[in-house]
Design a binder for these strands. Structure first.
Lengths: 343, 343
DNA sequence: GTGAAAGCGCTAACAC
DNA sequence: GTGTTAGCGCTTTCAC
């Protein structure tokens, strides 16, 4: 009926065509009560015929909402990012909210610019993945700007805002416990970047497991890495290139564990017969490495979905309960085994 | 000066504070001419002091723009998605446009619903990755709705809309040629999802290379996959778990190639001594797998950046030239070698 | 150079 | 149940 190309129909068009007022059209389109069923049907029919799609800008101007949710993260591995997005998107599907991706560089050093970016994006809410979820100044800015936020696995101020959590310390404890239960006592640890709170938490988890068998951190060999493959390579070399080497190495992520695997191969050390290696993340590498890496799966998808869910409910005026702690999973694969007999 | 929490400043507030009219504020904020420098400075100063951020909804209502660019794709590997996003985001940085991610399921079967989704999202433009860039009905819908689109590596109707292209057939031919030049003649092929035209194109590239050495497709073992790791695993098993197996396998992407690597390892087949494997994509897994995978790097980042660039220029009223064809790169790594002597 | 008035498409408040 | 009026924050006329 309307032959005009690319003239987006408005509620006025529908109102005229259906012989009712714009307000009635608005009511129907928003599923508000107090409209006769026959009118309702007629309006919906006309809307469909006119290929009507509501104008977010006009609606948002008056409802003071933008129907936009942001997702921030900082350079994690591709699979982490994709899981993060999948979780939020799954929850947003069918809702009148759209997801905007906002990756950062050096969030910790530029919390201010980051707050500004989020404000300019006209977001209603934002899902904050580590490490941006742990920047108090950013949270302050968001509070002031009235932008709701949901934090994924925060390590500090867990009471602030909406939180979707996991037990980072417990996850690290579990992987360390697994290695200790296999009988290992000569342990090496490769730390991640110390500015990431995850690194601290994971070390604490290792410490707890060691304590259970009467060991302390000063009895293990600790090397500093920064979560990258090359840093893992260097650290592994320091741990392995001498006589009294550990029989098991706990790396704080899979990339560094994979690097350790490669160093062991170069040094002719058999994994897992002579050396056990455990990572962290269940990233793609951990499955593609050989032997496949024992690691811990973080519930990234679940946390992200939960974060988006709570965010949306708050945006719709609802209340949300306390932080949910999502389950991690220890994945015992081929890179860990009992220590060698003489070990 | 304004102590009110979460009251977003408007140009009216700035106008009052700066002692000018709202229109003048608008002029300054949009870098329009005909404003005295002193007034300009004063307005900018007040805007900063009031932590002003323009309201996209209000601006969009009148300019008929939403300052929103979409990015669509369908279940490709994590690294492909991340490259795609990185390219578009890099171009959008600093521009008043935001990126909305719109992953699809079964785009080819639901082109209509997909067109609807894009229309409801109130996008100004959209970057279409395969296979959605090859759905004529979708392009028709977008044309009708007045939504600009940039297509990444389309395989059909290359003249429609904005195009950022690559030579998919040539890339596949190059990798096949490499394997054939090593001396392999017993070839296995693992196909990707047949709804992706990329799969067809790559097969055509393989065919061209085979033809050059006098081979035809009916002389090679072809198995169907769908670009995922598990599908590659199953396909590799069918190719390798019997006596007369190929000496080289061409997988249509890296995930399936990595899966093939794993299957070979489980079967005790040495790579590359007994079996050569080549992938496609230069994804992260191709570099982390051991041996590292010979593959072809697709210029995904470049295409995505180019697509976003052309889209933005058109959105700003500019003209864009014809499709750019971005260069692929054959990456010979450790997973390919001459066939075994008796092979 | 600058400002006043109008209105984008929609919904809140209130009338009928 | 339904319609009228007003106005969200901004930019477009067009006047001065």
């Amino acid at each position: 009926m309307e032959g005009h190309i690319s003239h987006r129909a408005t509620i006025i068009d529908i109102a005229r065509e259906a012989g009712v007022s714009p307000k009635t059209v608005s009511r129907v389109l928003n599923d508000e009560p107090h409209v006769k069923q026959s009118v309702r049907d007629k309006v919906k029919e006309v809307a469909a015929a006119l290929n009507y799609h509501p104008n977010f800008a006009a609606r948002g101007l008056i409802t003071r909402k933008n129907y936009l949710v942001g997702l921030t993260y900082e350079r994690p591995g591709p699979s982490y990012v994709v899981e993060l997005q999948r979780g939020a998107l799954e929850r947003l599907e069918g809702e009148p909210y759209r997801l905007i991706v906002l990756p950062f560089h050096d969030a910790t050093e530029r919390a201010e610019g980051l707050g500004n970016l989020l404000q300019s994006a006209s977001l209603d809410g934002v899902v904050l993945a580590p490490p941006s979820c742990d920047l108090p100044e950013l949270l302050d800015t968001l509070d002031r700007a009235g932008i709701l936020y949901a934090r994924i696995a925060p390590h500090r101020a867990k009471e602030r805002g909406i939180v979707a959590d996991m037990d980072d310390i417990g996850a690290a404890r579990d992987v360390a416990r697994h290695v200790l239960e296999l009988g290992h006592r000569k342990i090496g640890i490769i730390l991640g970047d110390r500015t990431h709170h995850a690194s601290e938490a994971r070390l604490e988890g290792y410490r707890l497991a060691l304590e259970e068998v009467g060991l302390t951190l000063d009895r293990v060999a600790i090397e500093q890495g920064d979560f990258t493959y090359p840093s893992g390579e260097a650290a592994a070399q320091r741990l392995l290139a001498h006589g009294n080497r550990p029989t098991a190495i706990l790396a704080q992520n899979d990339d560094m564990a994979a690097a350790t695997l490669m160093v062991a191969r170069d040094l002719g050390i058999a994994v897992p017969q002579e050396l056990s290696i455990a990572g962290f993340d269940d990233s793609e590498v951990s499955r593609l490495a050989w032997p496949r890496l024992t690691t811990v799966r973080q519930p990234v998808f679940e946390m992200s979905q939960d974060a988006a869910d709570k965010l949306l409910r708050r945006l719709e005026g609802g209340e949300v309960g306390p932080a949910t702690v999502h389950e991690h999973t220890l994945l015992v694969r081929q890179s860990t085994a009992p220590p060698p007999a003489g070990g």
